[in-house]
């Protein structure tokens, strides 16, 4: 195996083109180095992008209010970032729950989505905010893909051999919008999710939902938005009954598996509770109290 240090973005892109599928991009290595040690991945070369900090390590707000997160931004940076905390706190919560400090120091947001584990914590919050992934290649330049289409399967992403992710972009929030990320693990810290749920709630009136978006992880091979559940809520009065209805539909929709962390049955029981919890957390963040809507 060769180790290629990219000193400039162009060098990384040229190396990817030359290697034509034989190489893997190496960022923090918190997934890739373990996969190599276990023999699960055997690339012929590693293209190390960790020295491209000048190009890829910033979180920046564009003039039109979009938040651009460079491919080398670490989980530690995400959870400490003021703009992320202010506008997309669910993402800060998710990054703060990825492993311990040691993992967050070097593990990147881009690496989390590129690894595309069904349990990746940052994918549900990025999905509910309709994050856009920016991809670059030497041959074709830049292109944008919605995260929803970027993740195509369990550990599968829509990226060509000669491409790499250079950034992730989040659009500005509509008014009266809040988000939440709730995760169940065996212990509080450092545990891969047994189940996770992100929600984004936009209110259109005192008790009227404008839009509700919900996505889960560790509940099937791929993290996805639950559009049937979302449709129940748009334009509706938010009642305890409606929340119960949405929660139980979501529980029926997900297709979790049994694994060493938990049974499928447990996951089906816990997801409706996370759904209700997320509605309540979003309402609390918006300062809205709806009578009759309580924690079950």
């Amino acid at each position: 195996m060769d180790f290629i240090y990219a000193q400039k973005l162009e060098e990384a892109l040229n190396a990817l083109r030359t290697q034509a599928g034989r190489a893997k991009v190496l960022a923090g290595g918190t997934d890739l180095m373990i996969q190599i040690a276990r023999g699960e991945k055997q690339p012929q070369a590693l293209i190390f992008i960790g020295q491209l900090k000048d190009d890829l390590a910033a979180v920046s707000l564009s003039q039109d209010g979009h938040l651009n997160i460079g491919a080398l931004v670490t989980h530690r940076q995400i959870c400490a970032d003021r703009q992320v905390q202010a506008s997309y706190p669910a993402l800060a919560t998710a990054s703060a729950s990825v492993g311990g400090w040691q993992t967050q120091s070097v593990g990147t947001l881009a690496g989390n989505i590129c690894n595309a584990s069904p349990a990746a914590d940052t994918i549900p919050p990025l999905l509910v905010h309709e994050a856009v992934v920016t991809i670059q290649s030497a041959a074709r330049g830049l292109r944008d893909v919605s995260l929803e289409y970027f993740i195509t399967g369990r550990r599968q992403i829509a990226i060509e051999n000669d491409e790499m992710v250079v950034g992730i972009t989040l659009a500005p929030l509509p008014a009266d919008t809040a988000d939440a990320y709730l995760k169940v693990g065996r212990r509080k810290a450092m545990e891969v999710a047994i189940a996770g749920l992100a929600m984004r709630l936009t209110m259109a009136g005192p008790e009227i939902v404008g839009e509700l978006r919900v996505a889960t992880c560790a509940t099937g091979p791929v993290s996805r938005r639950a559009r049937e559940v979302e449709a129940l809520f748009s334009g509706q009065k938010l009642t305890d009954e409606l929340v119960t209805q949405g929660a139980s539909l979501l529980g029926r929709m997900i297709q979790p598996i049994d694994d060493t962390r938990a049974s499928a049955q447990y996951r089906k029981l816990v997801i409706p509770k996370l759904f209700r919890g997320a509605v309540l957390e979003c309402l609390a963040k918006l300062g809205i109290a709806i009578s009759g809507l309580e924690k079950s």
């Binding site: 240090y5 290595g29 373990i34 492993g99 311990g100 400090w101 040691q102 120091s105 450092m190």
Partner: peptide
């Protein structure tokens, strides 16, 4: 595997699990 932290060293001042951090990196 990055679970226990017994291998923690500092890289540019940040704690990192050296058991899974690439030496070349």
């Amino acid at each position: 595997e990055g679970e226990c932290g017994a291998c923690t060293v500092l890289i540019d001042g940040q704690p990192v699990d050296s058991c899974l951090y690439s030496a070349a990196a």
